[in-house]
Design a protein around this nucleic acid. Sequence first.
DNA 1: GCACTGAGATTACCC
DNA 2: ACGGGTAATCTCAGTGCG
Length: 736
Amino acid sequence: MIPRGTSFDNIREVLVSSKSGFRDIADVSVEGRKIFSREVKAVKVVCKSTKALGENAKRLTKETEVEQVLEEDIRYSCLYLLETGAVPCQWCQLQVREIGVSEASVTNTYAATSSPTATPVDGIPELRIIAFSWMAFGERSSPNAARDPISVIAVARNDGQERTFVRSDLSDRDVIVRFVEFLKKFDPHIVAGFESNRVGWPYLMERAKLSGASLDVGRIGSSPHMSVYGHVSITGRVSMDVFNYADELPEVKVKTIENVAEFLGITVSTILPDELELSTAWSKSDSRHHLEDCTLNRARATLEMAKRFLEFGIELSSLTCMPLDQVAAAAVGHRVDLYLMKEAHTQGHLIPHRIERPYMRYQGAIVLEPQKGLHENVVALDFTSMYPNLMILYNLSPDTFVPIHEEIDSDQCWLIEGPGHRFRKSPPGLYKRALTNLIAFRNSVKDKLKSASLSDSERRILAERERAVKVITNGCYGYAGWPGARWYVREVAESAATLGRLSISRVIQRCRDVDLTVIYADTDAVFVNHDKDKVDALLRWVSENLHMDIRPDKMYQRVLFTEAKKKYAGLLVDGTIDIVGMEVVRGDWSEIARDIQERVIEMILTEGSLDKAKEYALTAISQVRRGKIELQDFIIWKSLTKPIEEYNVRAPHVEVARKYLTLGRELVPGDKIGYVVTTKGTKLHEKAQPYFAVAPDQVDREYYISNQVVPVVARVLGVFNIGEDQLVSGEQHSLT
DNA sequence: GCACTGAGATTACCC
DNA sequence: ACGGGTAATCTCAGTGCG
């Protein structure tokens, strides 16, 4: 209990006194801190154990004399990093006392007798990495951990050693035991898998439990356990799920090991039968060997991918202070959260709690109606880091925001016209300081990258560092408008959006004033005719008048705009084709439609020949009608975004998902449903069938012509007034 | 009963 | 489980018509 009349002068004695009921308090001090814009005197209580910290914090929260207890909700390991300034994935120095050899699988153990001091050393030390892949299956169904044993575990280590543990000569239990033995003998720093967080480890954990095998792969003999952000943690090692890193590759639409590896240029030859055929394949010895080979190939590919992603992970981890094994699994919002916590701590802010807040929408960016047609010689001008720079320029931050009824001299704050929000001009707010640091850091990395005398590995590390800084910098605006953010104030995001609209509008207006034709604009990019002198003058004007930079980004020899926003295709000056927003780049259209659209776009852009494009389209359509069918080309992939029971609409992919279930395949939100439209049935959701249960002759070719190919071709040719009717009737004429 | 229409649900994209 | 803006498809209930 804290008695009435306790002051900052005697708080220390009161808390430390045995009568207070608080226990294991190591130190109490009174320090000046900030809570948003408020300067406060805060009592810092240091406890002797994490247990005491939790209990004392709980007690203090109930005390009426205490306004608020803060920073007690932060993970202790994170608190330690904040307090000491130590950084994950970096070296540090500290005083130690030897404890001696312990049960842990380490050479020696020490207790820290001082705080660590960050001691950055460039380069990554030699790390032992092991990757594993597994195979389990049901009797013509998805594997179920409660029922189906692990059949194969394959491992690949970065010292070149490989193993495959197979159930044919071992029991399920022995497969796990041998795997664990092999892993522990290698004593890896990093254990990588593909989908190991959601599938691999949970499955192994369940099988180990059922078979009585020990899964003590941790350095202190512990088993893996579920941790924050849905990742699986292995004490003393970095558990790395390569799948998490695949999120950084939007080009890969269906994220299987094979697809991700192929995109990264890693060859992985696994021609696996469908999941539901695995049990049949397993029963024959030669196909069983093939399954074993495939599992090993997957482990090899996982290892290569882990190595490829590691540098980025390390940079992101040390930048955000989030441990390496968590940072990949954490969403951008959480990464920014951690980064800001570190920044806030060094700036003397107390870290607010994460609380539930209502969702409030606000107006976002401007998108202009494009000038439909084919344009020659066009340049896309982009603001460099528009939102971050606006947040810096106008000091947009939760701690500089002036609430509506607060009276303040208008000279002292920025007024955001429109919503009418006000922000103090000084001192610099949390976001301003964080973003200024991030941008300065990124520029310094860019400068280093320009140096000619870099080794390949140094160059890669710097490039990944730049990428990590970019992710956090660009994430700040979205974070500011996210109700789950610790530093959420809607007005900050709303003001940034308002200023963004104002900025791009002024550029567009300026273009019109100087006779630069604006063809299209979206958020922070303006497409104009590439009149070099006028563009150069415009760049100077923007810099002088808006105090931000706009720079020529993509230059097009030719660019085609449809009537729709966010969809265009252009031929860049380097000869490559850039397709944005069109079905070609969408994962939820059949390959056949996307391929044909891509060819049509190519012909128009590179050859400038509308006739050829139209002729090609007609030929392609008749091919679809009469040619040979590769089933692969007809699959339509769509994600399941929620549990199947929650869908109320009989959408094709939802109905197909239900058919997946009846066929024995399990599904979870996030899974991709692949389906093919067949001739069977009348409603689309009846005609759609799981891709693995369809024979080529069942494909409804007419559906694909009229609902996939014709629309996407017409999207392009429609720009030149060639409508769907001409594509359909043209074919009919040639038929008669 | 049938074609048509518009709203709503859903997904994936752009920046 | 970071923001808003956008296109597009398909279902489904409602509407007018015969």
